[in-house]
Amino acid sequence: MLQNRITRLFGIRHPIVQGGMRWVARAPLVAAVGNAGGIGFLSAHTQPSADDLRREIDHVRALSDQPFGVNLTVLPNASGFDYDGYVKAICESGVRFVETAGSNPAKYIGLFKEAGVSVIHKCVAVRHALKAQSLGADAVSIDGFECAGHPGEEDIPGLILIPAAAAKLDIPILASGGFADGRGLIAALALGAEGVNMGTRFMLTQESPAHPAIKQHLLAASERDTLLVGRSLGDSSRVLRNKVSSAAVDLEKTTGASHEQLQNLTGAAQWMKAFETGELEGGAFPVGMVVGLINDVPSCAELIDGIMRQAREILTSRLPSLIDG
C-alpha cells in the first residue's frame, strides 16, 4: 500500500479517487470504487432534487460500508439546480467528504466545515488552488489541460501544473486529467501530488452506467480523438471527436456561435441521453485525452488492483534497476 496524507484524509487503502462525473457517478460505481480500496464521489447535480440525492447516498451505503463523497459542481451559467438543497442533504446525511468544483466554493465551504465535512476543491489553475486553501479546503484536485470536461482557458498540462501547485500549496494535491494506470500514479507522486483523481478511466469500467456501445466506441479512440468545444466563448470543454462536436467547432469557426447555439449541439441534455441510449452521434461526450491509453473495461476492483500492482512493480523493480550501484 502507498500511504500518505490523501489516504489518511479519506481513510482509504489506495490513493485513487473516482471523480464526480455528471450522469456517470452513481451509487453502484461509487460503491465499487470504495469496496476496491479507493474512494468514489457521487455527482450531486445528476440527481433531479435534494431528496433524490439523499436516496442516492442511502443507496451507496446499502452497497458499501467504505468511505465515499459527493461532488458539488456549481455551474455559473446554469439554472434549475437546488444547490442549497444539495448542501443541506449532504450535511444532514452525514457525508464526510465533498468535492467542490465550478464556481468559487466560498459560499458553501463554511457550511461544510461546520458539519464536519472535509472539502476537496477541483481547480484548473494554481491561483484557484491557493484561494481554495485560504478558504479552508482540506485538499485540492488539480485538473490539467488533458482532462475531460472543463480544462480552463490557460492550456497548462498536468506535467507543469501539478509541480507548480505543489511548490506553493501546503494542503495535499490530487492529480487529475490524464491518469489511467500505475505509471500515471507514480508520475503524479513524483510531481508532488499524493494521489490521482480519474474520470474517463472509471467511465470505462463494468460498474459504470454508460451504455456498452459507448464504452466499446471509446475503446477504439486514440489520444487524438478529443477536441475542445466552447473555446470561442471562453467556456472550453474537452469532448469526444464525432459529428456533433466537429459540427460545433465548425460553427464556432465560421459564424461565431452563441452559447445557445452550442448548447443545442453539445449541451448536457443531449450527451446524457446518448450515454443512456448508446447513440454514438447523439452528443458531445466529455472524455479526456487519456482515452487513448485505455483498452479494456475491467471491474473497479480489477482496475485498482492492476494500478497498484503496476505502481509497485515500477517502484520495486524498474526504477531501482536504473540506479548505478
Rank of each mutant, 00 (worst) to 15 (best):
S208W: 04
A180Y: 06
F179V: 09
V249G: 01
C300M: 03
L189H: 05
E114G: 00
G283T: 10
Q263I: 01
E153M: 15
M198Y: 07
A27N: 04
T46I: 08
M1W: 00
W23V: 14
K107I: 03
H211Y: 10
T100N: 04
S49R: 05
I171P: 04
I120H: 02
R61D: 04
S299M: 13
Q310P: 00
E146Q: 12
R22I: 04
I162T: 11
A187R: 09
E154A: 13
F10W: 12
F202A: 09
L63Y: 07
G306Y: 02
P163H: 05
Q216N: 15
A78W: 01
R5Y: 00
K168H: 15
A25K: 03
A125W: 04
G37Q: 09
I214N: 01
N295T: 12
G282A: 11
P157R: 07
K168S: 14
V95R: 14
D170L: 12
P15G: 04
K253A: 15
A213T: 09
L240C: 05
Q263G: 15
P163V: 05
A27G: 07
A62I: 00
F145T: 01
L303H: 07
R54Y: 00
T73V: 15
Q216E: 15
G158R: 11
F275H: 09
A221Y: 08
V95K: 12
N77K: 15
G199I: 01
P105Y: 08
G116I: 07
F41R: 12
G283I: 10
L227S: 10
R5F: 00
P172R: 09
T255I: 13
P212G: 08
Q133F: 10
A132Q: 04
L322I: 05
Q18P: 01
D170W: 10
L189T: 02
G283F: 10
E302S: 13
F285R: 11
I323G: 00
W23L: 09
G230V: 03
N77S: 13
K253Q: 15
G116K: 07
G152D: 02
H150G: 04
A164N: 10
A101D: 10
S176E: 01
A101C: 10
T205P: 08
R241I: 01
M1V: 14
M272G: 02
L111T: 14
Y86E: 09
